[in-house]
Design a protein around this nucleic acid. Sequence first.
DNA 1: GTTCCGCATGAATCGATAG
DNA 2: ACTATCGATTCATGCGGAA
Lengths: 309, 309
Amino acid sequence: MVDASLYLGDCREQLRMLPAESVDLVVTSPPYADSRSTTYGGVKPDDYVEWFLPVSAELSRVLKPTGTFVLNIKEKVVNGERHTYVIELILAMRQQGWLWTEEFIWHKKNSYPGKWPNRFRDSWERLLQFNKDRKFHMYQDEVMVPMGDWAERRLKKLSHTDNMRDPSKVGSGFGKRVANWIGRDKAYPTNVLHMATETKNRNHSAVFPDDLPKWFIKLFTQPGDCVLDPFMGSGTTVKVALQMRRNAIGMEILPEYFQLAQDSVDAARISSGQLALLENKDRPLGNSSPKIRVSTRISLNRWDIEPKR
Amino acid sequence: MVDASLYLGDCREQLRMLPAESVDLVVTSPPYADSRSTTYGGVKPDDYVEWFLPVSAELSRVLKPTGTFVLNIKEKVVNGERHTYVIELILAMRQQGWLWTEEFIWHKKNSYPGKWPNRFRDSWERLLQFNKDRKFHMYQDEVMVPMGDWAERRLKKLSHTDNMRDPSKVGSGFGKRVANWIGRDKAYPTNVLHMATETKNRNHSAVFPDDLPKWFIKLFTQPGDCVLDPFMGSGTTVKVALQMRRNAIGMEILPEYFQLAQDSVDAARISSGQLALLENKDRPLGNSSPKIRVSTRISLNRWDIEPKR
DNA sequence: GTTCCGCATGAATCGATAG
DNA sequence: ACTATCGATTCATGCGGAA
């Protein structure tokens, strides 16, 4: 039995409603600078750090001392230069007390196309790992990847498109069923993750693939733990968390995206029910309670009510 | 005919001997913090920025306005955290007037094995691209890579929508100029480089593979241009530059590494002579002058003579 | 059931043009 | 001078339908 709580509203308001030290993992991908300008007030690159710090302060409050914060972000190009707001944010968050434990690289295999005289396609993003304490929960065995001759032969054929269809065969892993590899040699992954972006979702412009939150949820939480995404968008993180039997909290300011997330959670709940039936198929069927309970809280303290600059 | 100049000594001294705006490309991998501690005074992570800024200042002086500086660097872990000296260095170099044009990722496919309780193997490094001006030389066609199977099928028969795709619809995607694609079999690369580390060389601890400097030399210089590596180590950059008919300048403070670099350049010269013979095989042999001229300058102004703190 | 092919689409960036 | 909008450029992926 796991819970999902979805909040409609500005996460800087909604986060105050959460009790301190109640979350095991935060995985989120906040709106990047200058994007989604109509909804988030169009945060200017120069204002980004100032805009984000109140959020990270609240996240520090709600996160357990053993918990982890994974921040997906990438700086944009301004005047031919990479802007510095991301690295400035790292420094500022350390001033807030965060530990900058690690930086994972998300290698986006299908990056946006284009040609420019002075740069190539940008095909990676940062996955910044922050912690409150040097001691945090990490379940490394959950994300081991297959190794050995058999796997290496497969990995060598990566050039062929068909072999890349299954994410479990690619580079750093994301194998779904580690059980399948019992008897094979397994190895720990690295801090480089190879995954394609999601292109099929037409409703939300910036969805990351399910495997991305899935990997971090496996790595940093156990079933029954609590996962939070304060910028849930269409709800990928919440959906995946529920599927993995973690409690989930999601927040979103835009009603359209909030609706998508609700639908997504509904689907996960139904799917979870089916899973429950399958799991119980050798036990007597009957009054099985729903596996996921969803509560939706809608706040009127909308961010976009504030005066725009 | 290309030249190689090797300087034995501290690059902060040696760089002063170079004329201003004479170098087309700097590619280097400076000693990381806390490593090689006996030579450069054992740079502490906290002192790294202060230590490096005089070097980058000199590099700015000797670099042509159209030139590029590629800095291979990675922060180490200190007290369970990624240290911030690299991102602080970026900010400080911008204060010096450098433009932080791009950050490439070097994905080290065969990263050093190991296991730690709270982190995975580090399998990537930063390749920071700095420029003096927004306009710089970049020869993108030199580093194109084969395209995926996608192209063959697609270009075999131009699809209906390729001709019809309405640019006004989304603003993204293929426009009308399908003609650009006819006969195309190569694509421009991205800012993620996949290269294995060099394992053969036991004499120098941190050698990067030949392909790494080769890629940047192809991308940012033409034959006859000048490539500089102020921390040449065993001389990989210089060797590769000579093989590619670029003039090369290398500096190294440690006599042992300097010797390795000299040997490496000798080998490149010999190899170059053989190449010359092959190139001239249909021309009369004879008093062919050596293709590479090497001058070695040894300075007595050794850094380690300065008082240690 | 495979395999193959057609096809839409995406956290982009630059330079020129317009207010 | 400084900012907003627009056109041009580019390619890997997953889905669905066909062989």
